[in-house]
């Protein structure tokens, strides 16, 4: 077919999505860029807001906290999601019910999830009650600068793992059974089947999960906002909480927009690296 014709067909398929995405995401985002270049009370563009946030120890700390959080949470969630997907990808009684229960936390308003886990993690709460009943020392959880981030990771993983599991599960069910039979004839054991068939066949769904999971975790903030406000001592001050606080609580929109631009740039860089890493020879483009 001719190039021009193909372009027209593609345009017809793409037009609604492109219009929606540009009108509802990209265009408002350019106004964020615009605001980030205007220092408070100024009408000419400058980099003053960027200079301010990069000299602000609170913002720098939040960048650092976010990166550490991501390095831990993304691999952790993906491994657990993969393990759960492998577990529930079988004909066991009521399997649909179990899958739905594991997925359910993602449908509950995050404000409610945060309250429930905040209560669970209270120093006088039920998790410590279990620890005490088992003869262990009670822990401080959200009230300690050392344990708060770990507690937040537990909460966001409880919310999200079932969601990521679902995408991997869909990928698993798409692997042709014949591939397993072929390697079994060659005498492959369980692990080899997983390594040589399952993982390579999951490359596309896993790319999706890796990228989407990274983006989602970059943008985590409701549990932080509700449970710790970024504390104790800034130990859980993830960047989205910092941005939200600046924009909607402290009323410093211009530095919040500068921080948003920094965030989007950082996520874009990480995501592009991930695309390169997961690219296979037959895929074109990024």
């Amino acid at each position: 077919m001719q190039q021009r014709n193909k372009l027209l067909v593609a345009a017809a398929f793409l037009a609604p999505a492109i219009i929606a995405v540009i009108f509802l995401r990209i265009w408002p985002a350019t106004s964020a860029l615009h605001e980030s270049l205007l220092a408070p009370g100024e009408t000419t563009y400058s980099l003053e807001n960027y200079a301010y946030i990069f000299s602000d120890p609170v913002f720098l700390r939040s960048l650092q906290v976010t990166l550490v959080f991501l390095v831990v949470v993304a691999p952790l969630q993906i491994v657990i999601a993969l393990a759960l997907a492998l577990l529930v990808n079988a004909a066991i009684p009521f399997v649909g019910l179990w899958r739905a229960i594991i997925l359910l936390p993602v449908a509950i308003p995050q404000s409610v999830s945060a309250v429930v886990w905040g209560v669970a993690f209270r120093p006088d709460g039920p998790v410590n009650a279990v620890l005490i009943a088992m003869g262990l020392e009670p822990m401080r959880f959200l009230t300690s600068a050392e344990q708060a981030m770990g507690s937040i990771i537990v909460i966001v993983s409880w919310i999200g793992v079932g969601y990521w599991m679902t995408f991997i599960l869909a990928g698993l069910q798409d692997i042709p059974k014949s591939l397993y039979e072929a390697v079994r004839i060659d005498g492959a054991n369980r692990f080899q089947q997983f390594w040589y068939v399952t993982l390579p066949q999951l490359r596309r769904p896993l790319t999706f999960v890796l990228v989407a999971n990274t983006v989602a975790n970059f943008l985590v903030f409701a549990p932080v906002q509700i449970l710790t406000s970024g504390g104790p001592q800034g130990s859980t001050n993830l960047i989205m909480n910092e941005i939200y606080t600046r924009a909607f609580v402290s009323g410093d929109r211009s530095s919040a927009m500068a921080a948003t631009v920094v965030l989007v740039t950082a996520v874009l860089a990480v995501v592009l690296v991930q695309f390169r890493m997961m690219r296979s020879p037959e895929d074109k483009g990024i």
Binding site: L7, A10, V21, R25, A29, S31, V215, V264, V271, G285
Partner: peptide
Amino acid sequence: IDFPGRNIVFIVMVVSFLIPFDAIAVP
């Protein structure tokens, strides 16, 4: 469909889900 500009469109799509929606809600 293999059309010219496919990569650019795909990048626009990717960027669109990187933007935190709460940050652009006001504009």
